[in-house]
Design a binder for these strands. Sequence first.
DNA 1: AATGAATGAGCCTTCATTCAT
DNA 2: TATGAATGAAGGCTCATTCAT
Lengths: 189, 189, 189, 189
Amino acid sequence: MSDKAAKKRQYILDTAKTVFSDKGFKSVTMKDIVEACDISRGGLYIYFDGTESIFEEIIREESGNAFKGSGKSAGDKLAFFLNEQKKQILSKEKSLAVALYEYMFFKHENGEDSNPATDLFKTGVLTLEKIISEGVESGEFYADDVKRAALNVMYIIEGLKIAAETVGVTQEDIEEGLIFALSSLIADE
Amino acid sequence: MSDKAAKKRQYILDTAKTVFSDKGFKSVTMKDIVEACDISRGGLYIYFDGTESIFEEIIREESGNAFKGSGKSAGDKLAFFLNEQKKQILSKEKSLAVALYEYMFFKHENGEDSNPATDLFKTGVLTLEKIISEGVESGEFYADDVKRAALNVMYIIEGLKIAAETVGVTQEDIEEGLIFALSSLIADE
Amino acid sequence: MSDKAAKKRQYILDTAKTVFSDKGFKSVTMKDIVEACDISRGGLYIYFDGTESIFEEIIREESGNAFKGSGKSAGDKLAFFLNEQKKQILSKEKSLAVALYEYMFFKHENGEDSNPATDLFKTGVLTLEKIISEGVESGEFYADDVKRAALNVMYIIEGLKIAAETVGVTQEDIEEGLIFALSSLIADE
Amino acid sequence: MSDKAAKKRQYILDTAKTVFSDKGFKSVTMKDIVEACDISRGGLYIYFDGTESIFEEIIREESGNAFKGSGKSAGDKLAFFLNEQKKQILSKEKSLAVALYEYMFFKHENGEDSNPATDLFKTGVLTLEKIISEGVESGEFYADDVKRAALNVMYIIEGLKIAAETVGVTQEDIEEGLIFALSSLIADE
DNA sequence: AATGAATGAGCCTTCATTCAT
DNA sequence: TATGAATGAAGGCTCATTCAT
């Protein structure tokens, strides 16, 4: 039973994720999710309170999957990290990016600056920090202030992401942007 | 008469701007604006079709004011430009940034990648291009590809803006981010 | 002044007539008429109370023009009368027919069975009566009960009119219908 | 469940029918129906899209009931048919006639000449055709062109109906009108 | 657990009508 | 006379949320 329930819960989350990918965060209604899942209105409320809690759970899940490192040298790891970002930005299937931003705006307006979505950002920065500091130790990278370097790289990534969802970006835009992000880590050595 | 009407129209735009600053784009209703302006429901429709057109007019106005250059050397101009961005990002009074992003998401989802808000982005890039190429000519800056350099700087600015509206940024974050943006223009000299 | 006013009044009536022809009676708003006439909202109220009184005045005018006899023998007159009806029914330019029916429904619902529009019907019947009784006297027509004969012809005309505005009629439908209407007047002699 | 829903749906249709009978088609609002049914605004939308679809369903139902033949000879059948029409026209309880006309005007204006209401007219003509051709075969009626004869009878009926809803008719008007309609079928034998 | 009917609030939009100028 | 801004009522539609079954 509880097993069956867990499966249904997961099914709802998976289905809802596509809805949020399609429509962002704000315009998704419980009705949208009910229809996408083909369950009853009341049924959805058994598992979730509202769109906000559904979305938060989706993000928490995402966080688990994100930034799975790979590679031996710090350089490899960074290349992998950036390549993942690139793939995500270019991905034809709509991503959760818009929904994430909308959700964060929503929370930020209400003064809540810590939430599952900001955690995702912070995790990204931490991941970068680790990679960079590893690279600095191994002599692959140069950085005065690792934290700062990680943040700066992240700003570019965010800038690219937001541009992708608003003005549009080409593959070249992304590649050149990421090279630029890297440049400071290797150029000034 | 028409003069009075123009004043009222402007009053509505000014008032609506504060509403959009407070609530973003998507959650602003005609009712919100009606109440903020203390006019009747029908009265607002005399001047505007809906929130979208009101917002677009606000953005067009904003565009006029944005990026007013100043300074003699290219370096001065760039410093001024970046400082303006910094002030905007730090500004305590809520800015239109969130509303702008939400509006652009909305348009982007509908496949409309050219709108008053993306124009604002593009104008920013063009302004940067002009300043940078001027600096390159005068020897103040170094840049292989001016267009690319301008875009990269813009990505950082956007990254900072979005971070400011989601995870929050400190003044130092902004300053260091902007210095990073500049670094490529001056480092390789 | 009063002359100028009369002209404007007439201009409004003429313009409004096209509006009623296009949209019927019920869905015409004061706004529609204001826009068609290109005058101010307030301006229209100087001359008329509302759509109802405008329409009634138009109908009264119509009544004056309708059923202008012509022809020497009763047969000629009847032929002319029926031909006018035929032309009206076939007329590509939308007629007032729908507006008239809607107006009459509206009045009938309110228990007012005498109004400018029903007068038009009654005038039609009277005209027919006159023609038929003239024909009976001259031996051209045969009719037991002139009033009844006139009414019956009128029912067919109304039936054709309403069919024209609902299910559609062909020119042949009209011609055969009118011949049928005539048949009783000449066949049984 | 679905059974209960079907009952409610039917209840709404029945109640709405009285509303349309009272007020015609155009001036009936969803609010009117909501109030007549004593349900909530949203509740009505569970079952129907808008007044148009409610009305269309009512008409489709009506169509099922209409023109149920009866009688042995063609003459009997025709007498029955015409008597039904007469009863309908005379009926004290307001009929759907006005609503039907308004609905057809509305559709006709939009170029849609085929709809549940025009079907009702066409079914009437077909029914008449069948009866008449049966009568012609049995020698009870005379008709050169059965289709035409049926149409002509229908025009008179429509003329009587519309007169009943506008200028008013007496029982005698109807009877004499229907006799007139019949006359051509039997006079020339 | 699950269903889906029901409610009611909330926003949208259009007009008739008034009124200061 | 004439203008057109302003108001407020009216009707449309959609949803979050509840609840009897």
